[in-house]
Design a binder for these strands. Structure first.
Length: 306
DNA sequence: ATGTTTGTTCCGAT
DNA sequence: CATCGGAACAAACA
């Protein structure tokens, strides 16, 4: 579930809560596998102090140093994939479903924490928790394209990246090696906002499309971060405090099959692209359109988005 | 029982 | 050999 806004929300909350804390204990539940193998993982991470937390693509990267602050060249890399959660719970808080790994955190030099647990939960177990050296982390980070929210990402570079794959624009946007961070929800809504059909070939995209699409993507991602991400009906995504996001109340087309387009009233359609649910407005989003502004039918009430 | 799922990787086909 | 696209990964839920 978590895409860039959800991972950013969790990363920001962890920055606020766990920097300066030390790892007092680590517990693997039901033989959950880490990398390296759990006994080694535990041995290497015990007693270390959290010095920074950051996001790389959809990964959460926790830098750990020795208790005295000496660099260990070690990072805890967490990917939530589809159903992963990170929950910060007070000691003794009721068990969370699908708990796989628990870090017991103790007060470090920076934080008057009396004792909390950071719980990694993952129903489908597509996510992972691993230790990486600086070199391993750099190599791992290298496979990603520029981050969708990178300030240095220009429409020109954005378009060059997308055109590296000769396929539909929706597929290209989902390829993390081209542009990192976007997932199915935000790609659907960004294409709608930019009035681009999901099936448009990347090779048919014009520079004007790139300006619109990058603008839409960044606007929607930022907006979702402000809403602390999207929690769908299955409630799989919640933040470290267990709170749901609210951006699901601001979806443009995602999950809105059969509902009227908020811009023109046409019923939203859905189909499968890249094995993912794809939602679009057949009036607003025309393949290879020469950016023609659509006037909504007069009987449709305008929604004040634009 | 069947179909669905927000991410990523792998393997077969082209 | 490189690229692309579908299947697979595993589990819960409707």
């Amino acid at each position: 579930m978590p895409e860039l806004p959800e991972v950013t929300t969790i990363t920001n909350q962890l920055k606020r809560e766990i920097i300066g804390s030390t790892i007092g204990d680590v517990r693997s539940v039901g033989g959950y596998k880490t990398q390296p193998e759990f006994p080694e993982f535990k041995k290497r991470s015990l007693g270390l102090k959290v010095s920074s937390v950051r996001r790389i693509a959809k990964n959460i990267v926790i830098e750990v140093v020795s208790a005295k602050g000496v660099s260990t060249n070690m990072y805890i890399v967490i990917h939530l994939a589809m159903t992963g959660r990170l929950l910060l719970r007070s000691l003794g808080y009721k068990p969370d479903p699908w708990t796989r790994l628990v870090f017991k955190l103790e007060a470090g030099s920076g934080k008057p924490v009396t004792g909390v647990e950071l719980r990694f939960c993952d129903s489908r177990m597509f996510g992972f928790v691993r230790l990486a050296s600086q070199e391993e982390l750099e190599q791992y980070a290298n496979k990603y394209g520029p981050d969708a929210l990178d300030e240095k990402l220009t429409p020109k570079v954005f378009l060059e990246q997308l055109k590296k794959k000769r396929t539909e624009v929706k597929r290209a946007l989902l390829s993390q090696d081209l542009i990192a961070g976007a997932g199915n929800i935000y790609v659907n809504d960004s294409l709608w906002m930019a009035r681009i059909h999901p099936m448009t070939r990347t090779t048919d995209l014009k520079s004007n499309d790139a300006v619109n699409l990058l603008g839409a993507l960044q606007e929607i991602l930022q907006e979702s971060i402000e809403h602390r991400g999207s929690t769908l009906g299955d409630k799989m995504y919640i933040d470290v405090y267990g709170e749901e996001g609210t951006h699901q109340n601001h979806f443009r087309v995602f999950g809105k099959n059969g509902q009227p387009c908020i811009r023109c009233g046409t019923l939203i359609e859905t189909f499968d692209l890249g094995g993912r649910g794809t939602f679009f407005c057949s009036t607003c989003q025309v393949k290879n359109a020469v950016t023609v502004k659509q006037n909504p039918p007069s009987n449709v009430k305008q929604v004040g988005l634009f």
